[in-house]
Nucleic acid binder design. Sequence first.
DNA 1: TCTTGACCTCGAGCGAACTCTAAGTTTTAG
DNA 2: CTAAAACTTAGAGTTCGCTCGAGGTCAAGA
Lengths: 133, 133
Amino acid sequence: MRDVTSNVITIGELARRSGLSAYTIRFYESVGVLRPIRRAANGHRRYHRDDVLWLEFVLKLKRTGMPLAEIRQYAQRRARGESTLQPRLTMLKLHRKRLVIQMAELSKCASVLDGKIRTYRKTIAETKAKQKR
Amino acid sequence: MRDVTSNVITIGELARRSGLSAYTIRFYESVGVLRPIRRAANGHRRYHRDDVLWLEFVLKLKRTGMPLAEIRQYAQRRARGESTLQPRLTMLKLHRKRLVIQMAELSKCASVLDGKIRTYRKTIAETKAKQKR
DNA sequence: TCTTGACCTCGAGCGAACTCTAAGTTTTAG
DNA sequence: CTAAAACTTAGAGTTCGCTCGAGGTCAAGA
């Protein structure tokens, strides 16, 4: 059996842990969101601790609406080292601003929804009362 | 000149007001997100107050991540009248739950981002200090 | 009258993000 | 040793949500 407790894992195990499909993980590598992954002697991908951590961060960005093209740019700057710290910081700050806007949007929509839910409940209750009479 | 203050507006005016393109508005009608819009004698669409309000609500759902297929289903139930109140209520409650999850995701990501931004700032400051020496 | 611009329909095209197929190797369990 | 499961590649196909092009009508302004 494969050692699942190791800090070097296969693509299948990473898929299981991340909730992505192996297809998607390879796709992310092919578009440059993940750097070229180290291989075992047989050519199979081996994901290390740092790859896993990076993927987790990528998924955070993705789930909060950053497009893959932008994540790729960030990844490529990261790969180029410390000289790109400033532009990366700018990207993060920009995304943070978008999050704030998104959160405002969500909470506004939540209260609209709450209003609708309340009136729906009332209407349904009234309809039922009428039927009983 | 066209009367822009009226409560019956053209597709161009609605596009201007909603920020969507006229293409998109027609597309929404074609997929059933908007009901078939009333026409002027010449066949041009005329949007009334209720159409505009409905579109506003649709955009709230869309911006908070409800897929068009689901919005269409809601719209079609709405068109079928009071008998669909219960399933519509269920849909709204479901979407509300998703909003809560999304908001949690966003704020979690925001704090991760804040952490990164802080360490980036520090690293940049240190690098500059080193260069001065 | 002529031109410009806003509208119409239908169907094709596009970009993003996967998702899968095919054909081939390798690993692992029995 | 063999069968099934897990991996590899390249490239095709799918879904979603638009976005546009072609070709046509119609109305208002110069």
